[in-house]
Every structure is written in structure tokens, then in C-alpha cells.
Amino acid sequence: ICLRINTEQLLPKEAAPPPPRPAALLRWDEVPEDFVECFILSGYRRLHCSAQECLASVLQPTNETLNFWTHFIPLLLFLSRFGRLLLLRGAGDVPFHHPALLPLWCYASGVLLTFAMSCTAHLFSCLSPRLRATFFYLDYASISYYGFASTVAYSYYLLPGLSLLDAGAMSHYVQHMACPIMLESLLFDLQTRNPTLFVYFYRRYFWLLVAAFFNVSKIPERIQPGLFDIVGHSHQLFHIFTFLSIYDQVHYVEDGLAQFLKAPLAAPTYLGTVGYMLLLTVCLAVVVRKKKKDTA
């Protein structure tokens, strides 16, 4: 009886590549000076990581991990909230393409873009110095976009209902003020007339002040350098309190929308909402492009 032996079974099989191991984290004196954060001594990812390594790092204890998650989780929450308002008819009986919802679309795009760009910048900041600068320029540009988008929502949903902008009610006051909602609460009884706007507006600015405090003071890592490198440093706290501020802002924008739908005072137009946002996007793109050239 002839036995036929498969020679392939006798040869050693090529070993499967081992799963990628997490790259060793670096100290502050092992990374470029531009990458060093004040009072953060360790937990830095190495420069020129691959995109795969950047993605894997969201599950590893680096000093950027919670910077990512403290904005990625809010991004998912706001996606759900705006999806309910705009796509699931949560804003009322109007369809998602109704002109009355155009300011909300602009506002939603600003909120979501801000959180998405923050996540992207923190996640891929170690690809290369040039890409790091580019991502953070886009992050800052998205904040400007969000600020203008908020103004669009305010101008339709909140400001028309203020006594401050009524020429008759303002006959004894100087008009064209810098902060209408704050002045409304000082000159008129906003707390009684619109308690939702009053409470959420002032609580939002309280969160912003707390966020600014942590961002500027670099507390707690300033007090004990090295102890809060991975968990609890100021930028993570800054992210948390900025999320709370926008969360409160969404509350009173949503309430303003509900009031607007009952008695719209001015019909939003594509030119006055989406048109302005597109123009701003072009301007911001020009600025970011110039900054990229200066960095190169």
C-alpha cells in the first residue's frame, strides 16, 4: 500500500502576525516641545503613530484618552437629541425640511461639528506635527462655526420675543445692546416671563466660567504634576464643563423653537441661515489654509 504524504503538512506554516501591541508611552522630555502640555509629565503617545494605532489608543491609558471620550460621548448624545428634534418630528408637526427648522439645522451642525472636530484633533494629534496643527486649526475653526450657528438660532428663536428689542418698551433705554438676553433679565422680568431661558442661560454661563477656570489655571495638575496625567487633568474638566454649558444651551434653544412654532414672527430663509453658514465655512477654510502654509 502506497501512502501519499502531503509535503505541505511537513513544512512549517507561516506564523500569523501577532496582534499589535500598545506602543510604550513617553515622558514629557521624550516628545517634541510643541506636544508637551503644561504640568503633564507622562502618558504621551509617540510621534508618527499610524491611524490604526491612534484608533487603538482610545482604549489605552494615555493622556489623550479621556480628552477623546469626554467629547465623543456628548457627540453621541447630541446626535440622538437632534435626531429626535429634526428627523423624528420631536420639534412638533412640521417636517424636517420645513423652513422654520433651518436655524435649528444650522445650530445642530455647529454643535455636532465642534464635538466631532475636537474628537478628531485629540485622537489623531500624534500622526505628524503638520497634521496635528491642521487638526487643531480645524478644531478652532469649528468653534467659530458653532458660535455663529448659535447666533442664527438666537436671532430667530429667542431674540424676537425679548422686550429689549421692542422699540416701544425701550423708549427710555439705549437700544442696540451687546448682550440682549442678559440685559433683558436686568431691565425686564425675564425670570418670570421666561423662567426656562433665565435658568438655563445663567447656568450655561456658570459652566463656561468653571470651564475657563480649569483651562486657564491648569488645576489640578499644577498642584501635583504627574498625578493627573491620565485621569483628572484640567483639559478633561474643561471638556466636561463645556459639554454641560452646551447641554443647557440646547434646552433653551429647544424651548425657543417651541415658542417660535406657535407664533413665528419671521420666516427663516435659506439665504439667511444656510447661506450665511456656507459663506462662513468658505472664510474659515481660507484662514485654515493660510495657517497650514505658515506652519509648513
Rank of each mutant, 00 (worst) to 15 (best):
W207G: 06
L186I: 09
S50Y: 10
C126K: 13
V199P: 01
D29Y: 12
Y252C: 06
P129M: 08
A169T: 02
L77P: 13
G256P: 14
L197V: 15
A121F: 01
R21Y: 02
C283Y: 07
L127W: 02
P12G: 03
A116T: 03
W28H: 13
P99G: 12
Y154R: 04
V36G: 10
F72T: 11
A133Y: 08
D29V: 04
Y252H: 14
F206V: 15
P225Y: 05
P225I: 07
L265A: 10
P195L: 02
P180D: 01
L162W: 00
K293R: 12
K291D: 13
H97W: 13
V152E: 05
Q259G: 11
E64Y: 04
P268G: 00
H239S: 12
S185F: 03
T7V: 14
W28Q: 07
H172M: 12
C119R: 01
A296H: 10
C49G: 05
L101M: 09
P32V: 01
V152M: 01
C106H: 02
L280E: 10
Y276V: 02
F78N: 10
W105A: 03
Q175R: 09
Y247D: 15
Y157K: 00
S155I: 02
A133W: 02
P61H: 10
I40N: 03
R222L: 07
V288W: 06
Y107P: 00
F39S: 01
K262D: 06
T281R: 00
G256W: 08
L76D: 04
H48Q: 12
K293D: 13
A23P: 02
V274E: 06
I73C: 14
G43S: 06
P12E: 14
K262M: 05
P264M: 07
D93Y: 06
G110C: 11
P160T: 08
S144W: 11
Y137L: 09
L187M: 06
